[in-house]
């Protein structure tokens, strides 16, 4: 039972991070029907920003929890700026181009950002400072739930609730839903679609940055290539839940987290990444609309 709980919570924390990144994919896809390949790289940049700020403040002797808070805030701001800029450079000029063009541009952007970090920082793994202290009251659960796992689960939960409220109740959220339903119609009724797209990229990037800092602090090391795998897995989560659907991305993230955790725990850990890819392939072939998505007929 303890082993099961360990896998359960491990999967839950892993899945929450997937969900955080998946939200960015799903929101962008919902609005401009583009797989934002560079999104995994934004997550990686978030982790690097967290590392830089944390390293800077720790060397000045700040306490761990305040360092974590500040690192999170700065990393979110910077990643949001990156997401915004990437959209302006690589996607906005291609708004009316054929379907393949923005996709290829996105792949190019992803390679560009990866190599930029590799050249400006380092090609090696960097150790991430220990930001999450072991809390005393968590000791009872320490056999199956570490403090950092709990941190990830709680933070992601709070962030996702905030996002849901934003989408449901603010003016901007309404505009985003309208644009996702029908971009042209939204434009006609006075929604500033360019602004909506920018905000979508900013929010998605911020969520990815939260995931990046949390996973960096949890795993304890990062390098320039972590965004690639995390990106594909998060995309799998988004597709699993039904791309374009926000609750779907959250559900998909958790399901993928659990699937990976249990598969590596009970079957074999050699093929950890293969499970995610197999799940992706199987879902896209048998239920491309995902768990919560609606099967839509293509308009001619």
């Amino acid at each position: 039972m303890e082993y099961f709980l360990q896998l359960f919570f491990g999967g839950l924390s892993r899945g929450s991070v997937y969900a955080l990144i998946a939200l960015g994919y799903t929101m962008v896809y919902g609005i401009i029907e583009l797989i934002n390949f560079a999104h995994g790289e934004i997550y990686m940049i978030g982790a690097f920003m967290g590392l830089i700020v944390a390293g800077l403040l720790t060397s000045l002797g700040w306490p761990a929890l305040s360092v974590l808070a500040i690192a999170l805030v700065i990393s979110v701001l910077y990643s949001a700026a990156y997401g915004y800029t990437v959209e302006k450079i690589a996607y906005k000029p291609l708004r009316n181009a054929p379907r393949l063009a923005p996709l290829i541009s996105a792949i190019g952007m992803s390679i560009l950002l990866q190599n930029y970090i590799m050249l400006a920082q380092t090609p090696d793994f960097l150790p991430f400072p220990r930001l999450i202290p072991e809390l005393a009251f968590m000791e009872r659960f320490s056999n199956y739930l570490g403090t950092s796992d709990m941190f990830i689960i709680v933070t992601s939960f709070v962030v996702m609730v905030a996002l849901t409220l934003f989408i449901k109740f603010t003016r901007m959220g309404k505009a985003m839903r309208a644009t996702a339903q029908n971009r042209k119609m939204a434009m006609l009724v006075g929604v500033n679609v360019d602004q909506v797209i920018s905000v979508t990229f900013i929010i998605g990037s911020s969520l990815a940055a939260v995931g990046g800092v949390l996973i960096g602090a949890h795993v304890g090391q990062i390098n320039f290539a972590i965004g690639f795998l995390a990106g594909i897995k998060a995309f799998t989560a988004a597709v699993l839940g039904g791309i374009g659907s926000i609750p779907g991305a959250m559900l998909g993230g958790l399901v993928l987290g659990w699937a990976e955790s249990f598969a590596t725990g009970y079957i074999s850990s050699d093929y950890e990444d293969v499970f995610a890819f197999l799940l992706l392939v199987v879902i896209l072939i048998f239920r491309p609309a995902g768990l919560l998505g609606k099967q839509r007929a293509q308009k001619v």
Partner: peptide
Amino acid sequence: EYRMLIFGATMVLVMV
């Protein structure tokens, strides 16, 4: 060293 960086940039620029 900049090979892949340039490849990535090329893909974006050509598309745009």
